[in-house]
């Protein structure tokens, strides 16, 4: 796991985002154990309470679960739920901005569709 912390966002949110990202990228696959609070805490010198607060966000979102005396595990179906969540956000995060920027640049709807087509082909 590679964490990139920045200084402007609360650390506990960043912990939650980084673990979620790792589950999304299948770095931690479903049913697998995620690093313990202490491990993350030690690795990045973050207060264990802060790490736990971040983890609890993921527990509440039903992405990871606590198994007594063992640790935290990725819940089956977690990856799918993250994909689902991100799909829902896709419109807000990207499409809205895309269209608004296109309008500023006087790109028409067919032109934008063409550009998207080109983007898919370039891949």
């Amino acid at each position: 796991m590679q964490f990139n912390f920045n200084s402007t966002e609360p650390i506990y949110l960043q912990v939650a985002e980084q673990i979620e990202e790792a589950i999304f990228a299948r770095t931690f696959s479903e049913g697998e154990q995620v690093p313990s609070t202490t491990e993350i805490s030690k690795e990045f010198h973050i207060n264990p309470a802060t790490v736990l607060k971040g983890m609890n966000i993921l527990v509440d979102a039903n992405l990871i679960e606590k198994r007594r005396g063992v640790g935290m595990f990725v819940v089956p179906g977690a990856q799918g739920r993250i994909v689902e969540k991100r799909r829902n956000q896709f419109y807000d995060d990207y499409v809205k901005n895309l269209v608004s920027e296109a309008r500023k640049l006087h790109i028409t709807k067919p032109e934008l569709a063409q550009l998207i087509e080109r983007g898919f082909q370039a891949k």
Partner: peptide, 27 residues
């Protein structure tokens, strides 16, 4: 510090000039 704090929680008060190193460690 984190290891012993996790195993046996107790209060630590850290006075230091190296703020960056403890910025995320202190509550």
């Amino acid at each position: 510090l984190i290891e012993t704090y996790s195993e046996k929680p107790r209060t630590f008060v850290i006075s230091t000039h190296l703020i960056e190193e403890i910025a995320n460690l202190i509550e």
